[in-house]
Design a protein around this nucleic acid. Sequence first.
DNA 1: CGGTAGACAGAGTAC
DNA 2: CTGTCTACCG
Length: 694
Amino acid sequence: MEDILNSLNDEQKNVILNNDNNVLILAGAGTGKTRVITSKIIYFIKEKKISPGNILAVTFTNKAANEMKARVQNYLKYDFDLMIKTFHSFCAYILRNEAFLVNRSRYFQISDSDDSIRILKKIINENKNIDNKNANYYYKLIQIYKQNLGKAVFKNIDFDNFKKIHDLYEEYLLKSNCFDFEDLISKTIEIFNKYPIILEKYKSRFKYILVDEYQDTNKSQFELLKQLKGDKNKILVVGDEDQSIYKFRGADINNILNFQNDFDDAKIIKLELNYRSTKNILETANSVIANNQLRLGKNLYSNKKTGSRIIVFNAANEFNEVEKIIEIINQKSFNLNETAILYRTNNQSRPFEQIFNKLKIPFVIVGSIAFYEREEIKDAISILKWIINPMDRISFSRFINKPPKGIGEKTLSLIFKESEKYDYDILKVLKNINKIENLSRKICKKLSDIYQIFYQANDLNIKTLDKLFEYYLEKLKIYEHYEIIDSKEGLDKVSNLKELASSVKNIDCSEEEILNYLENVTLSPVKDEDKGKKEKIKLLTAHNAKGLEFENVFIVGMEEGLFPSSKSMEDDFEEHYDEEERRLFYVAITRAKNNLVISYCLNRNLYGVFAERSRSRFIDEMPENLLQLNFYNQNVNNKMNLKNGDIIKHKEFGKGKIIKIDIINGKRVALVDFWDHSCFELFLDKVKLEKIDD
DNA sequence: CGGTAGACAGAGTAC
DNA sequence: CTGTCTACCG
């Protein structure tokens, strides 16, 4: 233990040695908070002789949880049951034990947002009398409603209409023996409220509750912590209000701002010594975030060198931006593996992918869970989900008609209706499929064939999950289904399915293992970053970059409307409307250890048309004396090198040919012969033209 | 029921 | 420009 304490600075030691209070550790970026939290756990176990089973540590990502677990176990050198989980997996754990109290079995499956939206689409289609809003809209409302534990918090919506859809959706989940993401939290709370004896069980078990990323907790997660926190146990939360960037999924920054009021004897300990970034980078970050009002306040300092200035440049458009970045990388000989490109929205990766591919520059898109969102992967997983939980309507609907065999909405409705006779067990419906009237002979035969596939699997005694996948994908003709689509796409899908199968070679086919696997896949799919360690540039969103660090960081697309995003600001027309976006920018800046480069485009293709952009307000908040500015303000039409004879497209006038380009009063004017109009003179700095190849 | 064409709307972050 | 929804036909 001495060695651990010695490796900590005074701020950090303070955390370890303070055990009498409920504590908020206000930990700035790069101040070693993971180290502190794991040291604390080790201290509890070794010095305070607290049994590992009495400690609960909650995080937001499985990655963080696993890291923490690994560090603690590595130090203590023996295996024990450490309850280090994400909010969602912790609640799933409780629900596996107590689900019957909310009318589910322990084999419940988790409906992800995609599944939930499918359910809502179905409901909307079947109830033509409801408001014609889309499924996404209702999904969002339902999540908010659940996060607020059933309090109607919305203004300006038809609550009765909403409630009707909500109730139908709940019924669907209930009959499917499923929970959605928010249910995991809210149903746990419901159980704790209804059955104090159950709550008491967990409350007395967890003597110490540690919470990571406290600034990201939402209303229901806060409520859950409040429930678990009794008179006798202590809570220690770690967070940074300046890194609260998950408002869109309900995170409430007030939880961290009000910690001292919410818990008695609460003490705040600040960690401000940053180990990550150069002084220049840190000072830039400090200046930017100082513009926020909603803060507890802290000022990071660094013992590292001053470092080079922050490069800020602009580019003609998003392709030019990529080219300039490549130039900088080459010029400065950045190590690709230590270089990250951060953007606000996922689709901004495109120009990078295109150009990197063309130039054979190795890259990886980090953190996209795209693999598990693919149609074919979800199909395959839905088969497993349905085996474990034969009530799961949404999973059943997903694979049953692939390849197409005439089983559509109508047949499904009949099957679901019939399932009422068997406690909603759809497998039993298939077993007795002949008993359904109004079902064509053909469909009946198909369904009973499918039943045979599932029935026979029992006799085969399949040992590992990959073999099980192979069996069903083969027998259900799903490989065939995708192979028949004679295109690259179909082949990609088959190879993705094979990849999925080979990723589960080591997983046993026991019910418990499969249950566990399905939960992991839904709550924390393995992300691409984990695969392969080859030298590659990382592409990722600023959100995904949280918690990571790189030698060299590029933050691109720093334009008004994009970063800060206009969408995000629509949500929030209050006083502090751009603060969340500023925090996100702050998170992005503080990822950089040594080199930081910021860029924006003068023009960007949106909806297929080039639109002029203006630079982000956040750029102007960076201290100019720390920057190396590289702006040019050449008009982009000039940059396009328009010349006589070029074919261009104008938004209003359509296509035309440039007859000549003149300079009038210092401005470039093009005379264009439009195909559908006569000739016009256009000031090139005023109009938006798109050059066309033909 | 399934496939497709053509209209239409729509760019945001994710457990 | 791209993905999604709708309407219609086989």
